[in-house]
Design a protein around this nucleic acid. Structure first.
Lengths: 181, 181
DNA sequence: ATACCCATGTAAAAAGTTACATGATTAG
DNA sequence: CTAATCATGTAACTTTTTACATGGGTAT
């Protein structure tokens, strides 16, 4: 039952930024974190329970609880635990890419099908780029920039660079497929 | 997100390329496929069993079985099943990137730690690039290029483009962190 | 003979998603 | 009043990894 992977740290990480409920935390994973990390309620609530059990977080008694909300606050022990994780080397990236898998297994006779997949991906990536650009605008035009902004910018830069690379790959691949006909 | 059930198709995909044993298939996932897909024995052997049960593969009786090897061969039904999957739209990519997660949660006081992570990543990516370059050389200098080569080249191109993008991001980020001191 | 790969397979644990149950509060 | 949304939580399920058990073949 004790979660030992990154989920606990991902949740704890959100708590380093403020006092939040499970529901709030989920919104983080559906928002700015969405492009490189996500967790479901089925992970978040047990993780919070476990964090409290291990003394890394406590239920915060805010004066006015809206609805049945339970807010959680990180403890000094939790902060230490988190910063230890932060400086630890990262594990191997377990990357699974369905599009790559299909392209790899495709034969020349599947060209049209693959071209269709590329076209679709092109659309998705274009949408993603718009989201990134908007997030970038939102970050830059902030009156009171928070001290963490530079780090957010770094992750945003990655989103943009990696998406551009994949976009370029799709275009080049479509180009190549068109020349084959 | 989109539950894959992709394991069966990944294994079936390998069988579209030839007659292989579970052990052989594992080697595929540790080799050329490694950069975008992998499966463990704990997935492969049950998947083969299931593929046979559903009539998508059969145990091939090769004249000489080396050791206790069992070779599997795709059936026409399996081929059809596979090609149907190939043309189906891909599910949402469930991407989890521990480095991004750490960068996102880092504060300005963690800069040195983050720089260390970037430096390490830089090394990993440089190694990865060498592997890609070597694979590229191996593919190009083939006397008898197989008909699937163009598709392999496409996946290889992606490896190179995406790794270059991440490499660039690491360098830019380190650069930026150095300027902050 | 003894080590060391080759090779198959499974059990158990861990990680993660999905679907549902429950109830409070707010907007129209 | 009613529908939508906010919010917590869990049970069941699927997916995936890890560790182990087993035994044949090969080279020294």
């Amino acid at each position: 039952m004790a979660k030992s992977g990154n989920t606990m740290f991902a949740v704890l990480g959100v708590l380093t930024k403020g006092v939040y409920s499970g529901y709030d935390i989920k919104k983080h994973f559906s928002g700015s974190l969405h492009h490189f990390w996500s967790e479901s309620y089925g992970q978040i609530y047990p993780a919070l329970k476990e964090l409290v059990a291990q003394g890394y977080a406590v239920e915060a008694s805010t004066p006015i609880q809206t609805r049945g909300q339970k807010k959680y606050q990180i403890t000094p022990e939790g902060m230490e635990h988190f910063r230890k994780w932060l400086s630890a080397p990262i594990g191997a990236l377990n990357y699974r890419d369905e599009l790559l898998l299909k392209v790899f297994f495709a034969t020349p006779q599947d060209k049209e099908v693959i071209r269709g997949l590329f076209e679709h991906e092109l659309g998705e990536l274009t949408n993603a780029m718009e989201v990134y650009r908007e997030q970038q605008r939102a970050l830059i035009t902030q009156k009171q920039p928070p001290e963490d902004l530079p780090m957010w910018m770094l992750t945003l830069n990655y989103g943009i660079l990696s998406t551009e690379a994949r976009l370029q790959w799709c275009k080049e691949s479509i180009e190549w497929l068109n020349q084959q006909r």
